[in-house]
Write a protein that binds this DNA or RNA. Sequence first.
RNA 1: GGGGGAAUGUCCCGAGCGGCAAAGGGGGCGGACUGUAAAUCCGCUGGCUAAGCCUUCGUAGGUUCGAGUCCUACUUCCCCCA
Length: 415
Amino acid sequence: MTAFKSDFLRVLSERGFIHQISDPEGLDEACRTGQVTAYIGFDATAPSLHAGSLIQIMMLHWMQETGHRPIALMGGGTTMIGDPSFKDEARKLLTVEDIDKNLEGIKRVFSKFLDFESGRALMINNADWLRHLNYVEFLRDVGRHFSVNKMLSYDSVKLRLDREQSLSFLEFNYMILQGYDFVELYRRTGCTLQMGGSDQWGNIVNGIDLGHKMERAQFFALTSPLLTTSSGAKMGKTASGAVWLEPDLLSPYDYWQYWRNTEDADVGRFFRLYTKLPMDEIARLAALGGSEINEAKKILATEITALVHGRATAEAAAETARKTFEEGALAADLPTVEIPRDRLAEGLGVLVAFVEAGLAGSNGEARRAVSGGALKVNDVPVSDDKLRLGLGDLTGEGVIKLSQGKKKHVLLKPV
RNA sequence: GGGGGAAUGUCCCGAGCGGCAAAGGGGGCGGACUGUAAAUCCGCUGGCUAAGCCUUCGUAGGUUCGAGUCCUACUUCCCCCA
């Protein structure tokens, strides 16, 4: 935990990425004296990674930054099984088509954080070796090294067992495949370190053991703390709760907003984890108190957005927010929904308008929002749910601004 | 193979004498207070052409004026015995 000698561990440590390391001194020494190759696996359970994976991506980034070689391992093979760690029930099986499609979206993110030029970072898909395994051979070569007694003792499966929920044999194999991945990557690239969230500890340690037995190699594990916001525990489960990294799934403006609304207490921690700003700069920003911390949050949001969506996009989002919140003006870059001019000309019900804008899930939900005073048209609260919008409601800019609450705004644009 | 349980509002947990759009909680959303924060308080949290109508309690049938609730079969899961 104390002073690391290698740049890599020192950076990770001071920025708060480290939760557990299997052999801190050994890893520190290895990082100090040579180039280490490490990997983190990403399963393709959704068409994009979300904010929860950002911490993993940043670890790979810092690794490359400090002179080592990161591998982003795409879980095209492991996703066929589904990781049961700390899950209270089995996930629905995805089809091969879905998995491969999801991977397309996931791959895209990494080029923004890693430099894949001339093998400085690698992207490998474990489908390459897992999807064509020979069952009996695999059991004899790899399976014999695993003790079921031991696997049953891991905390990661205890939740399931304690709740008396079924843990299928399929899922039970996940940690074996993950362990095998580690060995396979070692053979292919000399990879000796696996990183991941703290929920992956058991799986990673299994890989270390397997490395000892099959290759007589010294592997290392390094885990990061789990992101703990109120919604963190169920992250990725609810459709609206996930903060996607792909602009198609979550607009850069909304992404910026997400970070802008960071709790005071999280500001320093998020700066260290999710931005590349130097530590002294972060210390200064995090020390701001009272309402001044809002300035820090804006910088935080812009920095994090810039990493994922690019600097220009991030600054545009910041500017849109500034106009909307600080000037109360109508910013042209707010998320826009197009609507046929004819429909507007003949009169469009407010409820329908809000549903089409994506600010309400149904007419009924919009109706309730009206009675709760939550909806506004051009900043004027809606009091009558039978109100119809027409061409006369267009502002000088030729749009209609719909708002739900204080923070969500959408422009309706006739075409 | 035999015996006994369980499945509830398509976010989760969970109560439910045959009259139920179904208690309660978490989460989420909105309002007040603030600083686009936290904490706190209040409201909402099946759908619709809305004083009415439609669809919901694992699946399919049945009993009944009426079924989440009773019966039968099936599915999945748990426990006990072999």
